[in-house]
Nucleic acid binder design. Sequence first.
DNA 1: GATACGTGGTT
DNA 2: TAACCAAGTAT
Length: 330
Amino acid sequence: MNFISLLNKWYKKNKRPLPWRKTSDPYNIWISEIIFQQTRIEQGTNYYNNFIRKFPNLEKLALSTEDEVLHMWKGLGYYSRAHNLFFTAQHIYKDLEGIFPSTYSEILKLKGIGKYTAAAIASISFNEKIPAIDGNAFRVYSRFFNSEKDISKSSTFNYFFNLMLPLMPDNPGDFNQAIMDLGAIICSPSNPKCIICPIQVDCIAYKLNNQKILPIKSSYKKITELNIHYAYIKCHREILIIKRGYNDIWKGLYEFPKFKDIHEIYKISNTYTTTHKLTHKILHITISEINLESSEFYTIAKALNATILDKKQLKLYAFPKPLDFFLLYN
DNA sequence: GATACGTGGTT
DNA sequence: TAACCAAGTAT
């Protein structure tokens, strides 16, 4: 039996019962694929369930607002995913008659969808024979073929893509998901469980005992540090918030007004500091609480073009994690 | 092709 | 603990 048959047999018995596997509707598959970009199953599963409950189909998503979508995405990270998801839902609804594109090349044109996600949707929802290469697949293929190519290079993606393309079986969706499940359950990054691997017999890295040093991945991310000083401006139960732009972190989320020298102007009644670590930067955040009389409060709200928010309405707005945490106790 | 983009779990 | 990493994409 070849490795594809062995893998298929293994997958039928061992596939994980994940919620989005109950359907092949491209809408559901699309949502799941976006949520799970760079995101663990354990972290994203509740988000998937909540998202589908709130937006059960493409029309419901397209007719919502970006703030509603961001609110469902709050805490998940990589917020451009939510921004692009909403954009693409509206594009399909308005320009494509609400019909999800059905081929790899058409799906690839959609905003927020790259080569991996397009292949996943095309193979799972439309049975197109196209390899979906994510981090799991990179690892499995690197070991199976004993490849020492650097998986952070785009040329390596093309290498595996072209290698697997002619090998794709008649059930490409199951095959792609089987590779991913194998990578998650058996062919794990550290301590791969080669002893119980269904395709061990054909795995060249196992034969050469290279499984622990593969895949090769060059990576060095420079971490920068940044100070952010927020003014938490209050008037009784009302506070000021501002929506962030799209060129930086926390795209489209809400935050407090930012100041450099707020202490020189107003009286600070409380100060809260925290350190928040992203993958690529460390944020030193200071939040200064300032209580104002209503006339001054409304004047500064206007000057800052800030949104005045009754704290009872907090649930309608998406805040980044550290501010969400702060608001929980203030 | 290199870098920016979150959050939380693992080693 | 710091580094690494998880169903990647846009620029």
